[in-house]
Amino acid sequence: MKKILALALAAVMVFAFAACGSSKDSGTADNPAAAYDKYAKEFKTDGKSGTLTVALSPDFAPMEFYDIAKQGDDAIVGFDVLLAKYLAQELDMTLALKPMSFDACQAAVQTGNVDIAISGFSWTVERAENYELSDWYVAGDNETQQSIICLKENAGKFTKPEDFKGYKIGYQGASLQQVLVGETFGDMPDVDTSYVFVDLGTAVEALKAKQVDFLAVAHGNGESIMANDSNIDFTGFDFEVDDIYKNNVCLLQKGNTELLEKVNAALAKALSNDYYSGWYDASKVYAGVSTLDELGFDDEGNKITE
């Protein structure tokens, strides 16, 4: 018995040490992080005017996700992380990322535990009532293009709302997709829209298990899903998205207008300088959705400009 215990203990220690010194092996020639890292490094995130704590739910590639090869805050990557870094730089603040579940992000802002939540939040009436919402920022096709995905065998056959009669469409709860499904199919009793999922991963499982026929997703998330599962494809149907939904917003505590103004000023500057598309493309490459080539980066991660 003692031997087994000793062995188990030894194993734990080895693991623990290995974990401490886990290697950074992201230096290969075909380095999907290259473009992203180039952006990330440019930001100065150790400003003097206090700490900017940012809540985000890093299980949502390519907007925010984890790179296991990196350590600490650097391991949290994605479009929203670049935006957070940019904001910290513009506000001359020190950035602190606080990863937590999507629900917890809202609670964190509400209680004042963090200054701001940047985690792919869409604008909704309810959110506008309970939080200070920033001006919108562009999250590439992840928001502007909202699609329906299906198993490969159904791809391309469904292009207009009437085609979905007699089928089941699932979506993530409290998401933009829920709003869009309601707007598009709400008055079509033949379409079963009663399948609500807590997260996208669970929804994809339900699709694969044929419990639902379709999933409403943001286009970018759809691409991430397909990158890992060749059995899934776009139907060819895209939602008509109102301008108000096309973009993401940051959540701030109700009444925190001082920070809100600074954030909005920074967002306005980013928009006028057209920073967003570069960040978004780099994040997509990083998440494995696209290759450097496809989106016009060279091997060092520099954007090729015509």
């Binding site: 984890y66 917890a104 890992n228």
Partner: peptide, 20 residues
Amino acid sequence: TFFVGELMTSYLLVKGNTYL
């Protein structure tokens, strides 16, 4: 829920990256 790094966090991270 707060991504502290234990096994279920591992699940969330890898699932978030792979959607599997």
